[in-house]
Amino acid sequence: MFTGIVQAVAEVATLADKPGLRSFTLRFPAGFCAGLEIGASVSCDGVCLTVTALRGADQADFDVMQQSLALTTLAELRAGSRLNVERAARDGAEIGGHPLSGHIDFKARLIEIRRPENNHVLRIAVEPRWMRYIFGKGYIAINGASLTVAECDRRAGWFEVWLIPETLRMTTFGDKAVGAELNIEIERSTQVFVDTVREAIDERLGPLLPALERLLAASGQSLDALAEPIKPRA
């Protein structure tokens, strides 16, 4: 498990393709590898990878399967590429973000960047089937960083996150340009809640469900909206 608090930025030292997988050697900042052992887990741009070899005080090897390469942005890495890294959380560790599994759900595309004073705003496009799990003020993990959704638009298919200068300093988000792909892990308890509500609706309504969906669509609503937490009145 990971906390979603990025601990450092690593750099790809070398990479090599092998039958069925790609091997990476990552170079870490001084001290990151202290106590790191073969078999340990490290979140690399949000992907949980296993240490396969240690090289000196600041480098380690990792293997990535073809399935992970296809699902994530790790296939795009080249020598010199930078990525967010976090070591697995220890028992009793403070969860400064939210619990992450390191299992990426999908890739999303950065479609807009705004830079108001002392802020950095990313607007990210998402396929409709995943937007149902994204709520304003809810958690989401982007390239291994636990972030809060500032705003989302399900009909248009996007959400935004606002980054403070410290987040930019500790991560690679400042390197990203419009068009970049990002690794997304949705918040698991939100997924379970939404799926449970939808399954309950499917069970109870059965044949009436298509008619209800059309009725909701005509008024600009959707079944996903029924799963949203009720906001308290001001």
Results as ranks from 00 to 15, higher is better:
148 T>C: 05
169 R>F: 07
160 E>R: 14
13 A>F: 08
149 V>H: 06
171 T>K: 10
196 T>E: 06
123 R>D: 12
217 A>Q: 12
205 L>G: 07
202 D>R: 15
143 N>S: 11
74 L>D: 00
141 A>E: 09
118 N>H: 13
61 D>F: 07
4 G>S: 14
28 F>M: 04
122 L>Q: 15
223 L>V: 00
131 M>A: 12
174 G>A: 15
4 G>T: 11
17 D>P: 02
110 L>K: 09
31 G>A: 10
98 H>P: 01
110 L>Y: 05
29 P>F: 09
71 L>D: 09
92 G>P: 02
160 E>H: 05
157 G>P: 06
195 D>T: 11
16 A>Q: 14
224 D>P: 05
130 W>S: 12
90 R>D: 08
127 E>M: 15
98 H>V: 03
53 A>I: 00
150 A>R: 08
178 V>F: 03
47 V>R: 10
97 G>H: 05
3 T>Y: 01
142 I>F: 02
94 E>A: 07
9 V>H: 05
234 A>C: 01
190 T>L: 00
28 F>C: 08
165 P>H: 09
4 G>D: 12
162 W>V: 13
94 E>G: 03
100 L>P: 03
112 E>S: 04
31 G>W: 08
84 N>D: 08
194 V>D: 04
19 P>E: 14
23 S>R: 15
167 T>R: 01
135 F>M: 15
32 F>D: 10
156 A>D: 07
79 A>V: 06
212 L>D: 12
121 V>N: 06
92 G>S: 11
11 E>P: 03
7 Q>C: 04
21 L>K: 14
160 E>W: 12
55 R>L: 04
137 K>T: 07
89 A>R: 01
215 L>S: 14
166 E>I: 05
51 V>I: 07
10 A>W: 00
66 Q>G: 11
202 D>H: 11
227 A>D: 07
211 A>C: 05
5 I>R: 05
76 E>Q: 14
35 G>I: 00
55 R>P: 06
73 T>D: 02
192 V>Y: 08
219 S>Y: 13
54 L>C: 00
181 E>V: 00
54 L>P: 03
17 D>M: 06
34 A>P: 00
10 A>L: 05
218 A>C: 03
232 P>H: 13
30 A>P: 02
176 K>Q: 13
171 T>I: 11
22 R>G: 06
